[in-house]
Computed example of a mutant assay.
Amino acid sequence: MYKQKIVDVFRAFIKICEEHDLQYFCHGGTAIGVVRHQGLIPWDDDIDVLMPRPDYEKFLSLFSQLEQDEYELMVPGETPSYYLPFTKMCDKNTTLLEFEHIPCVFGCFVDIFPLDGASGDKEQRAADWLLFRRIANTLMILPKPSKENFIWLFKRLSKFQLRTAIDEISCAFYKKKKYWKTCERLRDIVTRYEYGKAEYVGSYGSQFGVKAFWPKVWFDDVVMMSFEGMEVRVPSGYDKLLTQVYGNYMQLPPEEKRVTHHSVAYRNLKERRSLEEVYQELNKKRKI
């Protein structure tokens, strides 16, 4: 049922893109699913897409004008409890809490990564991504209650994670102001190179590091392929792109690595519950 929910969100996202002439490309494990399985990888638990920065901005601006009440967006810089540097399109009639210590509730989702311009110099791309990642890591820390920051401070110190320990104590105060400032700093990095003029583009918010930066010509054309009974978009250079990120992506991984990678503290696929209701249910389960 969960996989059907995220496929439904994806279908709604594609409809919006088609109606408004917006570009997107399947990304990461979703792109592998398209090419290798013609659908979701059997053990995958999310759907990822890339949107060129101009299309991404248009999508965000028009979404609130759409005549629909089934979906919502989680956008960095708009909700202080949201802890990721990319957008999620979510089903408003479902409930997910990924981490119990981060008080942010949303619904079954599709991850929408902006595809941004990048430096033509490989070392500079690596430096830009590393700076982005270090700043983005604080988004995971800021939404925590201050009490949790102090608890995690000692956890980090016990593991000799000094940089993250410093972030924990720094993020315990003036949370909203620091959240807005952090999002501004991230935006400054990703918009440093104008998309239309850049020869290289990439997904700064991706987990793949410098592997997630590619020649823009790989995205010049689109190939339509089947995914869960739908026709979806992959970039014309998908083979080179996936090889760069994954190596031999057509080979199945060992069985022990065929696992999901998302944390789920709470899930309700029938209705949206408030954060307070979610915590109440979690506390009840602990007492049983």
Rank of each mutant, 00 (worst) to 15 (best):
A212I: 00
V110S: 04
G120S: 15
G209I: 01
L162Q: 04
W218M: 06
E199P: 00
E194C: 09
K211I: 00
K197N: 13
I169G: 09
D221V: 00
D128T: 04
P215Q: 03
K147N: 05
K177D: 13
E168D: 11
D111A: 11
C108D: 03
K216G: 01
A198E: 01
G209C: 03
V217H: 10
F109G: 06
K122Q: 13
E123T: 10
K181Y: 07
G205H: 07
I141H: 08
L131K: 15
F150S: 02
F150D: 01
A165R: 09
F132H: 08
K177W: 07
S158N: 11
E148N: 09
F150G: 02
S146V: 02
V222R: 09
P143K: 08
G107Q: 02
I169V: 15
I189G: 06
D121E: 15
L131Q: 14
T191Q: 10
K175Y: 12
G196Y: 02
L153H: 08
V110W: 02
W214C: 01
T191C: 07
V110M: 07
I189D: 04
K176V: 10
V190Q: 08
R187G: 05
K181P: 00
F173K: 15
A172L: 06
A126M: 05
S206T: 02
W152R: 13
T182H: 04
I135G: 05
Y195M: 01
F109V: 05
P215G: 03
E199W: 00
W180Q: 13
E184A: 13
M140L: 12
S203Q: 06
W180T: 12
F173S: 14
L131I: 02
C171P: 10
F208P: 03
G205R: 06
K147Q: 09
S206R: 07
R156T: 03
I151L: 11
E168C: 15
K122H: 13
C108E: 09
I141R: 11
F160K: 15
F213E: 01
I169L: 15
F132M: 06
K122E: 14
S119T: 05
V105N: 14
S206F: 04
A126K: 13
F132A: 06
A198K: 02
L131C: 10
T191H: 12
D116I: 08
F109L: 10
K144G: 04
K175P: 12
W180L: 14
A126C: 03
S146R: 13
L153F: 15
V217T: 09
S203E: 10
D188S: 13
K181C: 02
P143I: 04
S158H: 09
